[in-house]
Design a protein around this nucleic acid. Structure first.
Ligand SMILES: [Mn+2]
Ligand SMILES: [Mn+2]
Ligand SMILES: [Mn+2]
Ligand SMILES: [Mn+2]
Lengths: 219, 219
DNA sequence: GACGAGACTTTGACTAATCAAAACCAAATC
DNA sequence: GATTTGGTTTTGATTAGTCAAAGTCTCGTC
């Protein structure tokens, strides 16, 4: 059976490859993402290759094999189901469950995971709005997006603010950006790295991408 | 923080020392109990000594320090709370939860453990009848005993049969030894290694110690 | 008191995962 | 075409945990 380390690498590669659309992931991203030295990633990738979990072209990048994708999806499922349990059942805050799940995902057996899934009512989304893969690796669309990801001119509702610092919360309150408020991205400018946002009937204002990323909405 | 391995060793030493009353545990028991080579245990014990978790007299045995007992009790608490959760909440069978808990006990944070404890209603006993230590390492008496452990002439009720094999279950049914039945140990003979048992008003019969150990009762 | 058996310890070797630093490569710049 | 530079790979070392097998003690028996 794969070690926790192998599981973490494969999960990270899957997530990165989903973000980049081409499916090829660079060594640097992996090392960065897992907070290990570059050489550590290189050598671990060779192990994964021996296990037929990835294909690896030296100095080009890594792609998951079918076997790797399967394992990755399974880990994503574990991770997100555990997060859901921690929030729904034990009442932890959604901002703190990621770290917990990072450990528990490796310790939970298939059987227990199944029971947990059943107990939770086979949820489709985790507390962060990320879809929970089914046992056969199926995937819904992300339900919650941040303001950078969401489409222009589409009305949507603020769900959460990722940055819980007082400064940010105060700024948000001043602008009327509180959960429940209807907003709409009126314009997006990739060059100036900003998003123009309409709140209710007030006049639209502009938000930098850093801030836009911290505001989660559902449509 | 202690590794999972360290936690397993300390927990095992605690359990063994509780069984033997003198609190001193031999190297052989530890190696056997953890299913490692004798030399592995010796070298690991030296590590535990460096961490001030045990006192170690070469070729004599090991005792826990206060720090070690604390860690051991904490692990026992984790283990048994997790078992309780798996049975009570997820409906697993009490015969299969030990292995699951063996992994999960290391992956669960203090915070999550606390919430779990609360969620379960601060249970005092795990599904095997073993007491769950409180956060400050307090301990109730074992609630469920096997027929070898329970006192003579004390009426008690059959709770569980540890051996689930068809042969054993058939034998038990023939003798009326099913959960719920009131029984009483009428006599115990350590030399012949047997227990005389009265079931209801039928005439008492004798059980070997192997079989007696498989029958759990509460009083 | 010597002997042997069984328990315990030591030794030497191995694996997984990691890092720091040196070596290397490829692509953009001069 | 030569050079620089930034990412990648290689190298050499380290740590935790493990085993097999060789060596050492201790204790009960003669
Ligand atoms: Mn993880
Ligand atoms: Mn999540
Ligand atoms: Mn364990
Ligand atoms: Mn138990």
């Amino acid at each position: 059976m794969p070690s926790a380390t192998v599981e973490n690498y494969v999960k990270k590669i899957l997530v990165l490859s989903l973000e980049t659309s081409e499916g090829q992931v660079g060594m640097g991203e992996i090392a960065k993402g897992l907070d290990v030295a570059a050489g550590t990633a290189t050598s671990m990738i060779k192990t994964l290759e021996r296990e037929k979990l990835v294909r690896y072209k030296s100095r080009q990048g890594v792609t998951l094999t079918a076997k790797g994708r399967k394992l990755g999806m399974d880990m994503l499922r574990r991770h997100r189901l555990v997060e859901t349990f921690l929030v729904e059942t034990l009442g932890l805050d959604w901002t703190e469950v990621h770290q917990e799940a990072e450990e528990l995902e490796h310790a939970i057996s298939d059987k227990v995971l199944d029971r947990l899934d059943e107990f939770l009512g086979r949820p489709e989304f985790d507390p962060h709005g990320d879809p929970i893969p089914t046992k056969d690796g199926k995937f819904a669309e992300r339900r919650i997006r941040n303001l950078l990801e969401c489409q222009s001119k589409q009305p949507c509702t603020i769900k959460l603010l990722t940055d819980q610092s007082t400064d940010f919360l105060n700024f948000a309150r001043r602008k009327g950006l509180v959960p429940g408020t209807a907003v709409e991205v009126t314009n997006r400018d990739l060059i100036s790295d900003a998003v123009e946002l309409g709140v209710g009937k007030g006049k639209p204002f502009t938000l930098g991408s850093k801030a836009a990323k911290k505001i989660l909405v559902s449509s």
